[in-house]
Design a protein around this nucleic acid. Sequence first.
DNA 1: ATTCAGGTGCGAG
DNA 2: CTCGCACCTGAA
Length: 291
Amino acid sequence: MNEPGAARPVRLAGPLDLAHTLQGGQAFRWRREEGDAFLGAIGARLVRLAQVGETVEAIGAPRAALARYFRLEPADAQRRERLARDPVLAPAIRALPGLRMLRQDPWETTVAFLTSANNNVPRIELIMRALARAHGEALSEHDFAFPAPEHLARVSETRLRAAGLGYRAPFLREAARAVARGDVDLAALRGASRDEARASLVALPGVGPKVADCIALFALDVDDAFPVDRWVLRAMEEAFSRAFTLKDCAGFARERWGNDAGLAQQYLFHAARMRAAAPGVARVKMPPMKG
DNA sequence: ATTCAGGTGCGAG
DNA sequence: CTCGCACCTGAA
C-alpha cells in the first residue's frame, strides 16, 4: 500500500483543470476531497492531485506515469490551439482551457462505458466504486485498484448484480471472459485506427458503436473517435443549425476536425452539460433520441 | 406513479 | 440493414 504523502509532489504544467477533466464524463472513480484536491488510482498507485492555480501538484506516482495519464505532450497542446481557431468551439475552449483528454486504463474504461448504457453518471460512479471495493486490491481504506478482467471473469453474475450492474451483469461477465481469454487484446488496440478499434471492441457483449468510440477515445489514443450521444447530437445541431442523424453526425465532425474530432466532442459534450446544469437558466429537456 | 439516464441486443419487416 | 422495443435501478 503506497502512501501518497510519502513522496515529494510532482508539478504538472497547466492549463490543467482537475474538476472538469476528472469529472467531465471521462473518468468515474476520482474522489473529491476538501478544496480542490482529488484522490484516486492510476493503475495500482494511489494518487492525490491538488489544483494549484492553473497547474497541478501530484503525489503518489512518478512524473512519467502522470504525464502519460494526462497526455501532457506537445500534440495535445497543438490540438487545442487548432480547435480554438474554429469559431464554433472557440468560446468553449476559451472558457475552459484546462479540459484535457485522459489516457485511461483500457479495461477500466471498457467497464465504465459498458456500464454507462441506458444509465446515469451518479449510478455509473456508484457501480464502478462498488466493483473496485468488492473485487479490487485495497490501496487505502477508501481507495482500490480496479479489478483485472481475469479477476472479474471469475465473479458470479449474482455478485455483479450486487454491485448495481443490473441487466448488464452478464454483459460484463462475458466481456471480462473474452478479454481474459485474449479474444480481444485491448492493449494492442492503442493507437489503432478508429474503424479497427471499433470493429474489435464491438465484439464484446454490451459494447455497441457509441461505447466503443468512448473506449477508443478515452483510453486508446484514437483521437478521431467521436462518440455521439444525445448531448453531443443536440450540441452539434445547435452549433451548425441543422439536423443530424447518429450516423452522419460523426462523419460530419471528422470532416471538419479530422484527428482533433475527439477533443472537439469533449468540449461539445461538456459545454452542453454545463448549459443544462446552469443555475437560473430554464432547464431544457432533451428530446428523445430518434434513430 | 412515471419518467429518465452518455445504448445495446434482439426479433421483425 | 433498418426499425421498434424491453431493459436493472434509483432518483426526481
